[in-house]
Design a protein around this nucleic acid. Structure first.
Lengths: 195, 195
DNA sequence: CCTTGTTGTTATCCGATGATAACTAGGCAC
DNA sequence: GTGCCTAGTTATCATCGGATAACAACAAGG
């Protein structure tokens, strides 16, 4: 009763999907290839055979995650070509915790030269894409990315997002400022960004 | 010819200093207690005896790094109580790559509940400190932290900072916007932030 | 000098992990 | 049905890494 046979590329995609989950939790060094294999329902050596090494699997995973973010941005820009539209898209990505967490682990693993090189390339592509899609200035784009980084980190340490832990006062205080840069007479924002 | 004997707390501090270097490179899972031990010139089991476990050593290391950043902020505020002053202090911290890298690895390792809890506490303290020292609004503080996060990440992936790799066009483009939010007639900023 | 507390070491364990090699089996062509 | 290619497995390694335990050496007090 072997699992249904798939082509190598199909199995590869499936493995990358599993790898996103696995690496998102424990990072590059903290995740074993066996963790990924089990998540995908195949044997550990097969993972190595398909990707050559753990390092290559990780890079493929980071690039997949970056690609999905680019995709989300492109779609957002189709409806409206400005940063606000991309910001909304990013906000939705936040609910999909794993994608952003994988990117963060990519940044963290960048002291490995091969990984670092791939990560820089992905980062640069996203930066360029944001500029190209929205026509924003370098400074606006930097500010956009900075906010994205803060959100990514805050989601990773579980201060915001679906897996957030018992909220302390300062958490909602900071979360409520995001995407609410327009403090008119109202006093009590509804905390949508911290849901 | 044993090395000069130190008191446990002296050796502890020395170990934390070594741990900053070690963890900054490879993160929590990627660094062995033996790496730290060797950097400090002691045996691996002694590291465990002094700290109880690798996890506790890591938490002590992250808290030490956070503490040094708080210290830098406090000093900056002594001279001038505004965000610009803290920003300058942060810019100087960037040259000390390890400190910020350790924090990033702390964020990344936060899926471990014990580590996550400590990291959240450090993060919250820094947020509060920035607000208290400068009297900035929540939104201004968030923006300040967001920029800090982006800088931290960009330094970690070696896009800026002393260990930056062969610069590509987009890298200086984004780096030059930082701390230069005032685009008057001048066209060619000197790229100080990317030195 | 000898006892005692603290600093530090060496020896050792055991589980985990990435990778290799060799074998198995499903399905398509003819 | 008989090759044969490709998808997958089991078996096995060598190594590392965190932790424990038992021992050693230095220093100070009496």
């Amino acid at each position: 009763m072997t699992r249904t046979r798939l082509t190598a590329s199909e199995r590869g995609e499936q493995l990358v999907a599993a790898a996103v989950k696995a690496f998102a939790t424990a990072g590059y060094a903290g995740t074993s290839t066996d963790d990924v294999a089990r998540l995908a329902g195949v044997s550990q050596p097969y993972v190595i055979r398909l990707f050559g090494s753990k390092q290559r699997l990780f890079i493929a995973t980071v690039e997949h995650a970056a690609g999905r973010i680019e995709q989300a941005f492109r779609r957002a820009a189709e409806r409206q070509e400005d940063l606000a539209s991309l910001a909304t898209a990013y906000d939705e990505l936040l609910t999909e915790h794993d994608l952003l967490a994988v990117l963060l682990h990519g940044y963290a693993a960048s002291s490995d030269p091969t990984i670092g090189s791939a990560v820089r390339a992905s980062f640069g592509r996203i930066y360029q894409l944001v500029r190209d899609l929205t026509g924003a200035t370098a400074e606006e784009t930097r500010e956009f990315l900075a906010t994205g980084m803060l959100l990514t980190v805050m989601a990773s340490i579980r201060v915001i997002g679906p897996d957030a832990v018992a909220p302390e006062p300062w958490m909602s205080e900071i979360a409520d400022t995001i995407y609410k840069p327009d403090p008119d007479g109202e006093s009590a924002p509804d905390g949508e960004a911290a849901k």
